[in-house]
Amino acid sequence: MSATDKKSLADRLGLKVHSGVGNAGWGRTVFAAVISFIYFFPVFWIILTAFKTHNDALAIPPKFIFTPTLENFVAVFSRAYSAGAAAQDTGFALYFFNSVFIAGTSVLLALAIGTLAAFGFSRYPLRGNDTYLFIILTTRMLPAIVVIIPIFLMFRVAGLSGTYIGVILLYTAFNLPFTIWMMKSFFDELSPDVEDAARIDGSSDRRVFFKICLPQVKAGLAATAVFGLILTWNEFLFALLLTGVDTRTVPVAMAQTIGGDIGVRWGLLAAIETLFLIPVIVVTFMLQNHLLRGVTFGTIKR
């Protein structure tokens, strides 16, 4: 961890050329840059559209050079709903908070519960271990639409619909299968030698888990957190049916922006999506270090 924190800015951006076997130099950078920009282009266009006026967004041929405007970003938070009316607060600040709170809590919760379970499945196999794992996977296979009706009825009876706790628990369960499968595959790959050595030296199971296994699967934790966050952050169908006015998340609000009698306001939609994208990109960029440095397996040589 400390080695990570002390890295220079140039290193964080990947500017510094690392010496070693797997280094490809600036030639690869140019090649990768071309591919990446082609791949990124549709997103780039969304971001560009966010800075366009409504007329520019619908221009033929498409405009690459235009006068950027911030009116779409202002309109996300406060706009007039009909021509000539006074601008109103759209509540998007609340929706952004809801998205952050709900996605954050449920990803962390799923990570905590799921990692424990994955460790259990990996190190203390139960009778019928594979059956349990398979049932867990099965819960992800059915189209969400089918479980939605029972969940909806259940939430209504329990008074959970429209509350934070209901959605958070649901999303946690929604993230668990992936977390468990992912973390189990990481735990399975660990070399048992170090653990055995620690046990012989008198470490308790808890100590082995926290001090030896967990640090080695940091990359796995980061990767799982990123995937979970992305899926939860953008989840639409459950959010549409199970959140109330106060707990509504951004994707639902975004979908409601699409419907309208004067046609879709592409600039506005693009502005919402651009703002909505920033937190996920920041988190991914922060965790990328763990995601890709290969702290996990390469460090321990058998």
Binding site: V17, N23, A24, G25, W26, R28
Partner: peptide, 9 residues
Amino acid sequence: KQFPLRRVL
């Protein structure tokens, strides 16, 4: 492989 600006790309 490692190359300059890899993380950003």
